[in-house]
């Protein structure tokens, strides 16, 4: 029993965070992510860790993420823990654009600097809460529009297309859908169906198969992320329509490379995921250094076609 207690004590000690108000005076930045299980956020967190390793003398970094992308309660608790750990700044990719505002207000009232990355906090909610949080990140709508424009050049006005959306409640999913719509409307292309594939490959595969069967004239599938584009490509192939339909994605994940190379997927967007958290951290560090209030900052999105 004593041994067990000793082991437990050691484990607890190991879990205990390093003294936050460290003597060296280095600022401590907390990066609060969505699901670290998601390749996109994993890449983002890795980029941040590498940046910290290269600038170890400038700041300390605590990275944390939630288990499930929609687990708001867990993310709220993470922010509270970061406040309790006395970090100087929180760089957050909010799991929900409204539900995190209250806890972030508490963090800011406690004297922390808050920077919003990835999923933009809702402007109206921020206003209601009397909170100003700068957003450092890409314009998903403009990015999706740019990929959509590449597609619009491959097909013609009057053609039918369908959108496979992400999780419908997510702001970036809504923005990507809006961006696709912008590009299609501008080119006079008809969107005959728009359904959610929940960001997942297998679900998107089922949705794509159903759309292709129900709308035989569909010329293209516009997918709000690359995982869903992979699922859609498999559905198009199974329907015997490989080569007759175009697919576009978003995110530029490694697994999509072979499909971009042989044309099964026409284009995707790269928002430089590995740098997204870094942009936010740099904005936080600059603001901490010269005690200024950071402002909104747009980060680049590039269209990738091979």
């Amino acid at each position: 029993m004593k041994k067990l207690l000793l082991i437990a004590a050691c484990l607890l000690a190991a879990c205990k965070p390093a003294d936050p108000s460290n003597a060296s005076g280095k600022p401590k930045v907390a990066l609060v992510m969505k699901s670290l299980a998601n390749e996109f956020f994993q890449t983002m967190a890795e980029g941040a860790k590498q940046h910290q390793a290269a600038h170890a003398t400038d700041y300390d970094l605590v990275v944390s993420g939630i288990k499930n992308e929609t687990d708001l309660v867990e993310q709220v608790a993470l922010v509270e823990q970061m406040v309790a750990q006395n970090v100087q700044a929180i760089v957050i990719a909010p799991a929900d654009s409204k539900a995190l505002v209250t806890v972030l207000k508490r963090a800011k009232d406690a004297g922390l600097l808050v920077i919003n990355i990835d999923n933009k906090l809702d402007a109206t909610t921020l206003q209601q809460a009397g909170l100003v949080v700068p957003f450092v990140g890409p314009d998903n709508r403009a990015g999706a529009k740019a990929v959509g424009e590449v597609l619009a050049k491959k097909i013609k006005a009057g053609d039918e297309v369908a959108i496979i959306e992400g999780v419908t409640t997510a702001f970036n999913a809504q923005q990507r859908k809006a961006g696709f719509e912008d590009a299609m409307n501008a080119a006079g292309i008809k969107i005959v169906s728009s359904q959610s594939g929940q960001w997942e490959m297998e679900k998107a595969n089922g949705v794509a198969a159903g759309i292709v069967a129900a709308h035989p004239n569909v010329k293209a599938l516009l997918c709000a992320n690359d995982n869903m584009a992979l699922g859609a490509a498999a559905a198009v192939q199974a329907a015997g329509k490989a080569g007759q339909m175009q697919i576009i994605g978003f995110d530029n994940i490694a697994a999509l490379k072979p499909l971009l190379a042989d044309g099964r997927v026409l284009a995707t967007a790269d928002q430089h995921g590995d740098q997204l958290a870094v942009f936010g951290i740099e904005a936080a560090l600059n603001a901490l250094k010269d005690k200024s209030a950071p402002v909104d900052q747009q980060t680049p999105v590039h269209v990738i076609t091979k």
Binding site: N38, E39, E200, E202, N205, A234
Partner: peptide, 15 residues
């Protein structure tokens, strides 16, 4: 079977 239908493996599969 799922991998063979999709041609890929998704670590988030099956949630």
């Amino acid at each position: 079977f799922n991998c063979s239908r999709l041609g890929s493996a998704d670590p988030n599969a099956g949630v």
